[in-house]
Simulated assay, not measured.
Amino acid sequence: MGLPGVTDSSTYDGLKDVLQRQPEVTSVNYEPNSISKRFLRAPIAPNRVSPSTGPEPPALDVEWRYADGDTYYRIHYFDPNTGFNCGWHRDEDHPELGPVHFQSEHPEMGKSDHKSAHFSKSAPTEVLWEAVEQLFEEMLPTLSG
C-alpha cells in the first residue's frame, strides 16, 4: 500500500460498513491499527468463496486517499493459497489505462493482466459495493474453469 494523500475517517467508516455486510468477510480491521487507519483489511472465509479455497483465508484490502482534489484508492484481493490476486486501483501506476485500472495475477496459470476499468458510481461506498459484487459474483467463480 502507500497511496498519496490523506485519509478521511467518515470515508473509512462507510467502507468498513460495506465490508462488514459481505457474507464472505469474517472481520474488518484497520491496519496497522485503529489509531493510524492506513487501510482496511477484511479476511475472507475460504469456504464462502466459489471456488472454495484454503486453508489460509484470502484477504481484501481497501485503501482510500485524497490529495490535491484527486481521489486515489486500491481495492485488492489476495489468496495466499493460490497466489491469485486482483484489484481495482485508482493511482498513477498505469496512466495509459486511464484513471482506474484492474489488474490480476494468477501465478499457477502463468497469467497476469492490466486493463482499464470504470465504475458507474463515484461515491467510495458505491464503488466498493460494485467492486466486491464483481469480485465475488463474476470473477472468482470463473477461476475454476
Rank of each mutant, 00 (worst) to 15 (best):
T7Q: 00
P43N: 02
D61C: 04
K37Q: 15
N85S: 14
W64K: 00
G110F: 08
E92K: 13
S104R: 14
Y30S: 01
N47D: 15
S9V: 06
N33D: 15
K121H: 14
V28T: 11
L143H: 08
Y77T: 07
E133Y: 12
K115E: 11
F102W: 12
G69W: 10
M1K: 12
V28Q: 01
F136R: 05
T53F: 08
T142M: 12
G2M: 06
S104L: 14
A131L: 01
F102Q: 07
P58R: 02
P80M: 01
L15R: 02
L3H: 01
D91V: 02
D91Q: 11
G110W: 09
F39K: 05
S36L: 10
S122G: 03
Q134G: 03
V6G: 03
E133I: 13
P80L: 13
E137T: 06
H76V: 08
D8F: 05
N47R: 15
H89C: 09
D79A: 03
V6R: 05
P107K: 03
D113C: 04
G69L: 09
D61I: 01
V127R: 08
Q134R: 11
T71P: 11
D68E: 15
A117D: 04
P99Y: 11
H101V: 06
E133Q: 08
G98S: 08
L60E: 04
T26K: 13
K111R: 14
A123L: 09
D13G: 06
H94V: 09
P95F: 01
F78P: 01
N29A: 15
Q20P: 01
D70F: 12
F84M: 07
T71A: 00
F39A: 03
C86L: 09
P23K: 05
Y77A: 00
L19D: 07
L15D: 10
P32I: 12
L143V: 07
R74I: 10
P46S: 09
P95R: 03
P55I: 06
G14H: 10
F78K: 08
E138G: 03
T125E: 14
G69K: 10
E24N: 05
E137K: 00
M1S: 14
G145M: 12
S27E: 14
F84K: 09
T142D: 15
L60Q: 02
S52C: 10
T82S: 15
F119V: 10
